[in-house]
Amino acid sequence: MRPFGELEAAIMDVVWSAAAPITIREVKDRLPQHPERAYTTVQTVVDILYRKGWLSRARDGKAHRYAPSRSRDDYTAALLGEALTTTTDRTGALLRLVESMGDDEVAALRAALDAATTERGS
């Protein structure tokens, strides 16, 4: 899985920016030309992404056409939604800078911070 990390990301970029579902041949053609990737390599990694659930596919004649299962924005929102919840950082799996605050608390802190800043400035 490790050696394909970069290629996985590149392939997802291609599929995300494609207007319609595309074949493996098309994926290969739209990837950055160097390093040159063998068709079978691209095929292998596309298959990995399909099995991981990142890509969906439909048969079109002899070939498969691949499309992203979810848009990039959906994935981003899901990933960060996870980073925003309290449960994940309580396991120490990841550590957030700041937890969610209510609007009134943010306003109160803003006032206190502004006061502290002017006080030091004067």
Binding site: D89, A93, L95, L97, V98
Partner: peptide, 11 residues
């Protein structure tokens, strides 16, 4: 790329 500010680390 995301329109909500967030900073965290993955240890």
């Amino acid at each position: 790329d995301h329109d909500v500010p967030q900073a965290y680390c993955l240890p």
